[in-house]
């Protein structure tokens, strides 16, 4: 459903993404792994249209995306959950969620809005409990769930997740990932997930790509990539074993 072909992105003169080609099928979770600075987050930003200086092809459900501004891409079904969540802390949980519906919200659609909210509250009962609470008073894990829930309010078909485990207590990371997996199964969402926490991401992903300095160096089934030395090399950039004297 999503095809990226030969995507180049520049930050000024810096060549960040180099002819990146990848694909994502409907209802699939794909993990994008790699060290800091590999270009993973840039790829997500390029997908949603936040990076201007890009060339190459992006096709979503056979429609070219690369000339569309971010809001048009959201109406087509893409949504980004940005790194660091990006929730509005002085607003309440519910207000945050309502903001997620901006792409389709209209005065006459009040009923639909209510239904959508109810759906979200059934998915995440925790948010219902705290819906009048200010978002800034939630814990890190709860904020992450709120960020994902807000993204769901735009009724996406493709969810782009940027580092969902960042800044979250390790014991909650597992819970977040289980939520993500549940979303895929319940809503038949396709999910592209960028993650430092390779192990967790691979535990829920169907396939994975490994990026290194702006290019893809490996593609494969998640099960065959888990524990793959290439993952280690991509993160650590070198072969530690060879540096240890025998």
């Amino acid at each position: 459903m999503l095809l990226i072909k030969g995507l180049d992105v520049y930050y000024g003169k810096l060549h960040i993404l180099k002819k990146v080609t990848l694909h994502l099928n409907t209802g699939e979770i794909v993990a994008l792994l790699g060290a800091n600075g590999a270009g993973k987050s840039t790829l997500l930003k390029a997908l949603i249209g936040l990076v201007k200086n890009q060339s190459g092809e992006i096709l979503y459900q056979d429609k070219p995306l690369h000339h569309l501004p971010p809001e048009k891409r959201v109406s087509l079904g893409l949504t980004l959950v940005p790194e660091g969540k990006g929730i509005f802390k002085p607003l309440t949980v519910e207000e945050n969620l309502l903001l997620g519906s901006y792409s389709w919200y209209a005065f006459k659609k009040g009923k639909l809005l209510k239904e959508s909210l109810d759906e979200i509250y059934t998915l995440f009962p925790m948010l219902k409990e705290k819906r009048k609470q200010l978002a800034g008073t939630l814990s890190g894990g709860q904020q992450q769930i709120l960020a994902i829930a807000r993204a769901l309010m735009s009724k996406p078909t493709l969810l782009l997740l940027d580092e969902p485990s960042m800044g979250i207590a390790p014991n909650l990371v597992k819970e977040i990932f289980q939520h993500i997996k549940k979303l895929k199964e319940k809503l038949n969402l396709s999910i592209l997930i960028v993650e430092q926490n390779a192990k967790s991401a691979l535990s829920i992903a169907d396939r994975a790509y490994i990026m290194e300095t702006g290019k893809i160096i490996f593609e494969g089934e998640a099960t065959s990539i888990a524990g793959h030395p290439e993952v280690q090399r991509a993160y650590l950039g070198r072969d530690i074993d060879t540096e240890v004297p025998l």
């Binding site: 080609t21 694909h23 290194e212 160096i217 490996f218 593609e219």
Partner: peptide
């Protein structure tokens, strides 16, 4: 078309890998 795309994707990774390794 899908197969061609998959080939391109994998080919890029192969070329990057052999160039590096």
């Amino acid at each position: 078309k899908d197969l061609k795309f998959l080939q391109l994707e994998r080919l890029q990774a192969v070329l990057n890998r052999v160039y590096k390794e």
